[in-house]
Amino acid sequence: MKYLVMVQGSQADYEAMRGNGSAQSPAWTEDEVKAMYAYMSAINDDLAETGELVDGQGLGEPAGTRHVTLGEDGKAVVTDGPYGETKELLAGYWVLDCASLERVTEIAERVIRCPQPAGAPVYPVVIRQIMEGAGDDVC
């Protein structure tokens, strides 16, 4: 079965990884950023080796986000981010092809242990099953 495994973050976290800490997220050192990337790369390498990795990407910071909605007049309304009302956004994801929910949960438990500075926010790792074959019914 395929699963979407999602990690979350905020604009403050992206700023902190550039060394600009805040009350929401302490500044990261260059070594801490390197350790985080090495840890995530090792997970990617292991998942590729087991054949479970379909895709995985980190996403750009929320400041580059764009929302497109419909206005009351039926025309598109485009708003650029970041959005103050949104605390966390999707920061990255994996699409995994795993034998069971238990296996993908083991992977998520590994992801949640990614090294970070003391005091950095800890976000849940979200797992959603991908409904295969359901795409024909969407849009």
Rank of each mutant, 00 (worst) to 15 (best):
M1Q: 09
K2I: 07
K2H: 13
Y3V: 07
Y3W: 08
Y3M: 05
L4W: 05
L4G: 02
V7H: 00
V7S: 01
G9E: 03
S10P: 06
A12G: 06
D13Y: 01
D13M: 08
Y14G: 01
Y14W: 08
E15H: 05
E15P: 01
M17D: 04
N20F: 06
G21I: 03
S22N: 05
Q24H: 14
Q24L: 14
S25A: 11
P26D: 07
P26V: 03
A27Q: 03
W28G: 00
W28E: 02
T29R: 10
D31I: 12
V33N: 12
K34F: 13
K34H: 13
A35Y: 13
M36A: 14
Y37V: 11
Y37D: 08
A38H: 09
Y39E: 00
Y39G: 00
Y39R: 00
M40A: 05
M40Y: 05
S41I: 07
S41T: 12
A42W: 02
I43W: 00
N44E: 12
N44S: 11
D45M: 09
D46I: 01
L47A: 02
L47F: 03
E49G: 10
G51I: 10
E52G: 04
D55M: 10
D55K: 09
Q57V: 04
Q57E: 08
G58T: 07
L59I: 09
G60W: 07
E61L: 05
A63W: 02
A63R: 12
G64F: 06
G64V: 06
T65M: 09
R66K: 12
R66G: 07
V68A: 11
V68S: 13
V68G: 10
T69W: 12
E72P: 12
D73R: 07
G74V: 13
G74A: 10
G74D: 13
K75N: 10
V78K: 07
V78S: 13
D80K: 08
D80V: 06
D80I: 05
G81Y: 02
Y83D: 02
T86A: 15
K87G: 08
G92Q: 02
G92E: 00
G92N: 02
V95Y: 03
V95A: 04
D97H: 07
D97R: 09
E102D: 15
R103F: 07
T105D: 05
E106P: 02
E106W: 02
I107H: 00
A108H: 04
A108K: 02
E109M: 06
R110H: 01
V111K: 00
I112S: 01
R113E: 14
C114Q: 07
C114V: 12
P115E: 09
Q116N: 10
P117T: 05
A118R: 14
A120P: 04
A120M: 04
P121W: 09
V122S: 12
Y123S: 04
P124D: 05
P124S: 11
P124I: 06
P124V: 03
V125H: 00
V126C: 09
R128C: 11
Q129V: 06
Q129L: 06
I130A: 10
I130G: 04
M131C: 06
G133C: 08
G135E: 15
G135Q: 15
D136F: 12
D137V: 15
D137E: 14
D137F: 15
D137W: 14
V138M: 15
